[in-house]
Write a protein that binds this DNA or RNA. Structure first.
Lengths: 204, 204
DNA sequence: CTTTGTTTGTGAATGTGAGCACAAATACCA
DNA sequence: TGGTATTTGTGCTCACATTCACAAACAAAG
C-alpha cells in the first residue's frame, strides 16, 4: 500500500486488537482470520485488514494472521514493547480504583507513582505505592515517567496540567470533566464518565 | 434547516455543552456567543452553531445564545429534564468510585441501585445505597430503572448483559474490556480505560 | 432612520473514515 | 500438477463529519 497517514481511529482500535491477540495466545491458537477476529470484536473484517495493512503485510493469504507475531508487532507500533511508566495525580476514589485495576499491566503500562495534595493522604500506601506530595511533580522527568492520569477535581485540573507539562509529561489521560489547555502541545485523551452516561437516555 | 439525521458526534458533544451552560448560569451570565463557548471547550465556533442548529434556531443574531433557555433545551433533547435512574452492576473498586462520583447528579442521572454477586458485599452500604444480590436484576423494570453501568470482570460481562437486556434495560455504559453482544439491539457505550491509556505512547 | 459592528444559521466545500469488491496469494486435496 | 476453497491486501466509492464563507438578523449609536 502506498504511504498514507494512519487514521487516528485505526490507532484507537489497535489496543483492542492487541488484547484479542494476547487472549488468543493463551488459547494456544496459532493463527486467526480477519473474519473470526471481526466476529469477536464486533467489527467487520475489511476494517481489521485495512487497519493492520497500514503497517505492512503481516498476514498470510489463505491462512490469516499469526497470533504471536502480530501481537508483537502491534505492541511495537504502540510502543508498548517496553514498560511505560505513568503517574496518577489525585488519589481519590476513582484514582485509587485505577491503581488497583489489573488491566494496565497486560499493556505494559505501569502506574509508578501516585501524587496528591491532601496532607492526610501523603505517606499512606495504595497497594505497593506510596502517595507523594504533589510538589514532587518536578521529579517525574528524572524518574522516566512521561504519562499521566489526571483524576483531580475540575478546579485543579488546569493548573495541574500546566505543572505536568512543565515536568516533561508527554501524554495525559484526563478523567476530569473539563477541557485542558496545555502550554505546549501534548496528547490528551479525555474520558468524561458523566457525559458518556448522559448520552444514553437520548437513544432510548 | 431542512431535516437531516442528527450526527452521533453532535449528540456526543451535547453533554459538554450542557455542562458549560450550567456553569455559565452559576456565573450569572445571561448570553454567550458561539465563539466564546468554543474558546472554553476547545472547539471551533461553526461546530457549535451547527450542532445547536440541528434542533432549531435558539440563538439571537448579534447577541448569542441565552444561557438559561439553551440549557433547558439541551436537557430536553437528551431526555435529562427528568431524573434518569441507573443501576450499577459490580461493586468493586471502580464501581464504588462511580457511586460516590458527584458529577452524575448535575445531569439528573441517579444511581438508584447497586448489584453484586459477592455474598460478603450484599447487604452492605455504599453511601446511602444498599448492595443487592445480582439475582434482583429482574426487579429493575418495575423500579423504573432503564440504564445500567457495567463494572464487572470481563468473564461475567456477556452473561450479565444478557440478563440486563432480559430485564428491560435500554442503555449500557460498559466499563469492562470486552465487546458485548446483546440479544436485542440496545445502545451500548464502551469505555475501556486501559486501552485509552495504551494509545498515548504512540503519540509521544 | 441609517450606519456600523456583531453574531447566528446554513449551503457548499473539504476532509476523514468505513465498506465493498476483487485480484493476488496461499493451502489442501485428488 | 491442476483445481478448488480460503483469505489477505487494496483501489474505489460512499457516508459521515468538520470547516468555510456569507447572507440574514439583530443591537447600538449618532
Amino acid at each position: 500500500m502506498k504511504y498514507r497517514k494512519i487514521p487516528d481511529e485505526t490507532i484507537r482500535r489497535l489496543p483492542m486488537y492487541l488484547r484479542a491477540f494476547s487472549l488468543l495466545r493463551t488459547e494456544a491458537t496459532e493463527t486467526i482470520s480477519s473474519r473470526q477476529l471481526a466476529q469477536r470484536l464486533g467489527l467487520n473484517s475489511p476494517q481489521i485488514r485495512k487497519d493492520l495493512s497500514y503497517f505492512g503485510a503481516f498476514g498470510t493469504r489463505g491462512v490469516g494472521y499469526p497470533v504471536e507475531a502480530t501481537a508483537r508487532r502491534i505492541r511495537q507500533i504502540l510502543k508498548l514493547n517496553k514498560v511505560q511508566k505513568a503517574v496518577l495525580i489525585g488519589a481519590g476514589r476513582l484514582g485509587t480504583a485505577l491503581v488497583a485495576y489489573p488491566g494496565f499491566s497486560s499493556f505494559n503500562l505501569d502506574i509508578a507513582a501516585v501524587l496528591d495534595n491532601d496532607p492526610k493522604k501523603i505517606g499512606k500506601k495504595i497497594g505497593p505505592i506510596k502517595i507523594e506530595n504533589t510538589d514532587r511533580i518536578s521529579t517525574l522527568k528524572k524518574r522516566d515517567i512521561r504519562l499521566a492520569i489526571l483524576a483531580v477535581p475540575a478546579e485543579a485540573a488546569q493548573k495541574t496540567t500546566e505543572n505536568l507539562v512543565k515536568a516533561g509529561i508527554r501524554g495525559i489521560l484526563n478523567l476530569s470533566p473539563c477541557h485542558l489547555k496545555p502550554a505546549r502541545p501534548v496528547k490528551i485523551i479525555d474520558i468524561d464518565l458523566a457525559s458518556q452516561l448522559g448520552i444514553l437516555p437520548y437513544y432510548m
